[in-house]
Design a protein around this nucleic acid. Structure first.
Lengths: 234, 234
DNA sequence: CTTGACAAACTTACGGCGTAAGCTTACAGT
DNA sequence: ACTGTAAGCTTACGCCGTAAGTTTGTCAAG
């Protein structure tokens, strides 16, 4: 019908690449959420038709895997000679920070097993640090599973409960009617506590840093201390 | 076209209800995965057209919320006079068990904020037990967040890494080629360890109980012990 | 026994999705 | 100028959620 692409004869043709596609998809997800990342919309944002993407991306699944790698690439990796505790702390905080920067990525990190080179090399580094610190395979495995569980679980809760700052009023008003002091006194009490806490920190700092850091740090340190104790006992 | 529904004059007309719809959706998800739960397929499994469901369910979102409630309803709730530690243990194990019985529900539990009556009343009970045990609001909040994070994070990892028993060979062969001893020695070592562990337990017991219980228990106890210590210090 | 009202279930239609198959176009190397 | 090749496009299929409007089955009132 409308052969718009003809006009590209004049403009410089920037060739499509896997990277350009992934970047466009990532920006789209940042702007409009993961649901808006369809082959058609990604293509449109690149001034191209949907099917053209399939030259560089074998399926939508492949595209999503690519997105995971892109986000994983932004996460910090502790130096090989770090102490195991500092390493786990640094990595965990970085994971939390990056996942909150790209909330749409959290569900992808969970649902994909993540055998891309970036995530694998990061794991390699972490396990290496732990093993060199004297952890047995079994205890090291327990450590990684526990910390990973905590970090991902925490981030999910954080993102579920209070979406983004602008959504917060809506989230509260949605739950408030059903959570009355009469019916659920304890939940109500805790809800009120949380709201106050959020309110305190609401004015300064993005939601990434708002109020949750302390709770994150608390749980994380508690887990790491527990493993330290277990190590010393042996 | 084919007016099959006419034949219902003869058969006893079981009236559609919200419960029948949710149950059908749940069974469908158990059998063919969450992706197969579309309005059309749920309707078909009830011998009805898609649009008929909208009399009992306001949208697909509403249907998914209903599914969450159904699953939540199957989880155990500790008695009001339980000790806080036993309560958290019982609840956590029950959550893990039920979520592994309906793996498709895990992602729903995360992504929906869960202000349905079932989940709220369960929370109410748990917070109540914790507060009566002497936890301050803040420490109680930390406890719940930490344990919740761990439980959900653990279950996600468990489900992501080894899907179902029949998928396991595929999952392994998918990751094996990329995980070589040369490139990722530490990951390889741990992967081998995990495979052996799974192999041990593969013959007896469903995947719900296969190999992971020990690691779940380990991390969970470690967290609870940590909080116990914190309580005593104060 | 007929009628009419009401609710339950159905039909049609729209715009969006992922992607299979095949086609057009632009350009590089001869 | 000619041709091979690969980048990008077009068309089409069967799914999806759901808005709007229509038919059908049941049952109470006349």
């Amino acid at each position: 019908m409308n052969k718009v692409h003809r006009s590209n004869n004049l403009a410089i043709r920037i060739p499509l690449t896997r990277e350009r596609i992934l970047l466009a998809a990532s920006e789209l997800a940042d702007k409009n959420g993961l649901a808006s990342v369809s082959m058609r919309q990604v293509a449109q944002s690149l001034g191209v038709e949907a099917m053209s993407l399939y030259k560089y991306v074998s399926s939508k699944d492949d595209l999503l895997d690519g997105l995971v790698e892109i986000v994983a690439f932004q996460m910090d990796v502790p130096a090989l000679d770090s102490g195991w505790k500092e390493a786990m702390l640094l990595r965990s905080h970085s994971e939390r920070r990056i996942l909150n920067l790209h909330p749409w990525a959290t569900s992808l990190f969970e649902s994909r097993s993540g055998t891309g080179p970036t995530r694998l090399s990061h794991q390699e580094r972490l396990i290496g640090i732990i093993r060199r610190a004297g952890f047995s395979i079994e205890l090291g495995y327990n450590l990684i599973v526990a910390v990973n569980s905590f970090v991902y679980g925490f981030v999910i809760q954080e993102q579920t409960w209070y979406a983004s700052p602008e959504d917060r009023p809506r989230a509260v008003s949605q739950s408030r009617p059903t959570i009355t002091n009469d019916e659920y006194p304890y939940v109500y009490e805790m809800m009120t506590f949380i709201m106050a806490k959020i309110g305190e920190n609401a004015e300064f700092g993005s939601r990434t840093e708002a109020g949750y850091v302390a709770n994150f740090e608390f749980g994380l340190k508690l887990i790491l201390d527990g493993f330290e104790r277990t190590m010393q006992k042996k």
